[in-house]
Design a protein around this nucleic acid. Sequence first.
DNA 1: CAACTTGGTTGACTCAGATCAAAACGCGGC
DNA 2: GCCGCGTTTTGATCTGAGTCAACCAAGTTG
Lengths: 253, 253
Amino acid sequence: MTVPGPSLSESCAVLQQACDPVTCNNCGIYQLCLPLGLNQADLSLLESIVRRKVVYKRGEILFRPGEPLDYLYAIRSGSVKTYVSTEDGRVQITGFHIAGELLGLSALASRQYSSEARALETISVCKVEISRLDEIVQQMPSIQYQMLRIMSVQIRQDEEQMLLLGKRSAEERLAEYLVGLSRRFSSRNYSGTQFRLSMSRLDIGNYLGIAEETVCRLLSRFQEEGLITTDRRQICLKDIERLGALAHMAVAA
Amino acid sequence: MTVPGPSLSESCAVLQQACDPVTCNNCGIYQLCLPLGLNQADLSLLESIVRRKVVYKRGEILFRPGEPLDYLYAIRSGSVKTYVSTEDGRVQITGFHIAGELLGLSALASRQYSSEARALETISVCKVEISRLDEIVQQMPSIQYQMLRIMSVQIRQDEEQMLLLGKRSAEERLAEYLVGLSRRFSSRNYSGTQFRLSMSRLDIGNYLGIAEETVCRLLSRFQEEGLITTDRRQICLKDIERLGALAHMAVAA
DNA sequence: CAACTTGGTTGACTCAGATCAAAACGCGGC
DNA sequence: GCCGCGTTTTGATCTGAGTCAACCAAGTTG
């Protein structure tokens, strides 16, 4: 369980450029490398094994619960939502995933998804056959450790999301959501203060456990208070400091 | 990523007896084996490496966020709650864990806990040093796969909990909670219809994202309607069928 | 056994946010 | 340009569950 191979930060330095979904027009395999913490040698090996790009149109479904798990998805461009649903049709969005992020690991071991994933806009992904991943793991055992790491991060995020859904006011939820988005964008070399939401108010509300209308009202109020400016889905954060304070950021440590 | 070693069900058959926290008075190492899917050969190997039993009294803390991760915890008897908290002191319980369950995997890869764990009553656990786990993994690579599997289950549970916290009424939450508990108990050979809650109304409310008083009111109502009977923490489910219907059980698949 | 403590129960009141309703906006298609 | 449709915004009203407060039951302690 000691970290094998190159550290994540080392790999990041090497791959940052290649992984940027804007500059990287090659195969989405690079998208897979950053989260998996691979170096360039591993990269070319990986590349020789898998190479499969797919495009989904807005609204199309990548996978659904009950289906056998055949692929891992690395998002090259666009964004995706994942959600679980009750029998009687209510839906809870469990996450939004943007370019450069990895989808499907959560259900890797059980060979079945518990959630459904749907494209929010036209997206491009790299599908990696799980069966081929066997080969990869055999040649690069360190990958398995990295997958543990990713899943552990996922669990941490889910727990924070539980805290949010169980204990926070609507205002705190939305503030936290915006600041969180900002962080994710800036960690991927996009602007952290100005970005376009790929999800509707309805989706945001669903994700945060509040009503569509409440999202609108709060966005309007944030704008009145000079915290943000909005134009439909274009968002500009004017005072991240104060927004973070509103959100009572976050779990200790 | 193919399942190595014995299947989980095979291991279960072998270990079921040994893992029962009532009949098993030996080392809690058995507790570790069931979830990890080990056979008896692995078991004795494991046993030769780790052997560390610890007792915590009610209210004592097993680990807290920010602390370096040194141990994995297999619960031998009693029960434990884990929770995350905001800076300003609000708390969200993320899970209750009963005898036979495993604690600490979620933060394995990042070497740090995000949550805090506290004993609900006097408990007995088997602490496994992570550093020793290295040895184990080297000799039993299949363990790493099993850990993936466990974490994947954890993620699935967390997602269902998110659905519960985001989209369900207080009534549904409590009904689902009771039915879920019933399942867990009966899967460990306890009575699924009659059991003792180790957690207070306050904890239950916190876990479900509702107030203590609401838990009381609902339990009273369930009793009036003949769904359950309660005497303080002793619970008896009279009509699991109808209770399940109330909960709108559960995620498809 | 009287004084405390802790956990559980019940009632009355309040409010954040859901729901209902309707208007305004933006955008692709023709 | 104009139409139709999905999304966003705003307003008015309603309600589930939170909050506050009082009380009870069962241990515990001195």
